[in-house]
Simulated scan of single mutants.
Amino acid sequence: MFNRYADALDHRDWNLLEGLFTEDVTTDWFGAYQVSGRAEVIAYISELIGRTARTHHLLGNYTADIHGDTAEASVRVRAYHVGDGERAHLFEESLAGFEASVVRTAEGWRFSRFDERLYVMLGTQEVFGLNDAALA
């Protein structure tokens, strides 16, 4: 699922992204941005990623603790984001971890909680039109 998430972002495939979350998903990016509900999460992500010219997400070190129809899973992430338009000279690179709760539904496995923990950030969140002070 994490790979499909990265593909959805890097290819701007919002239909693929929508199919990864439960209706009542909760999210937390860096402890600074919380969004709940599938429609709201898709809108938030697509708007943020839409402010960039390109993204590249590289994933590794997967873990999963599966208990029947639920699981706790994580993966390490290196994500690179290039600015667009007047922000084309900017970049942001995150060394982070995705941590998620996953549930098996009639349609397959879905994220019911999706969090990103930031370990290192290079560049600036201004790539997304955000202020770096939110992470301080």
Rank of each mutant, 00 (worst) to 15 (best):
D69G: 14
G19C: 09
W29M: 13
R87C: 03
E107H: 06
G60T: 09
R87S: 09
T70H: 15
H81I: 09
H57K: 00
I42S: 05
Y33P: 04
Y44K: 11
E107N: 13
H56P: 01
L59D: 03
D24T: 06
V103G: 09
T55P: 00
Q34P: 09
Y44Q: 10
R87I: 03
G68E: 12
E18K: 04
G31S: 14
H56W: 14
A73R: 05
L95G: 13
H57D: 02
D65H: 12
V35A: 01
R104V: 10
E72P: 12
V25H: 00
H67P: 10
E93F: 07
N15H: 15
T26P: 01
Y80G: 06
R12A: 04
F21H: 00
A71E: 03
N61T: 04
R12Q: 06
S36C: 13
V75L: 07
E18C: 10
G19R: 06
T105M: 11
V77P: 01
R78M: 14
T63K: 14
F30H: 14
V75E: 01
A106K: 10
L90Y: 03
W109F: 04
A79M: 06
D10R: 00
L48A: 05
R12L: 02
T105E: 10
E86F: 15
D10T: 00
L95S: 15
H57Q: 05
T63M: 14
E93D: 14
H81T: 07
S74T: 09
T27E: 02
A88M: 10
N15F: 11
R12K: 05
L95A: 12
R76T: 07
A43R: 13
R51Y: 09
D13F: 00
A100Q: 02
D10Q: 00
A64T: 10
H56D: 08
G85V: 15
H81E: 07
A96E: 07
R38N: 07
A71P: 01
L59F: 06
E47G: 14
A64R: 11
S46A: 08
L58Y: 11
L90G: 04
R104E: 08
E18R: 12
V25L: 08
Y44E: 15
W14R: 02
F21N: 00
H81L: 08
A79L: 07
W14L: 06
L95Y: 11
N61Y: 07
V77Y: 00
G97K: 10
I45Q: 01
T52L: 03
T27A: 07
D28I: 10
G68A: 10
G60W: 04
W29S: 09
G31Y: 13
S101H: 12
Q34R: 15
V35E: 04
G85L: 06
A64D: 11
R87P: 03
A88S: 15
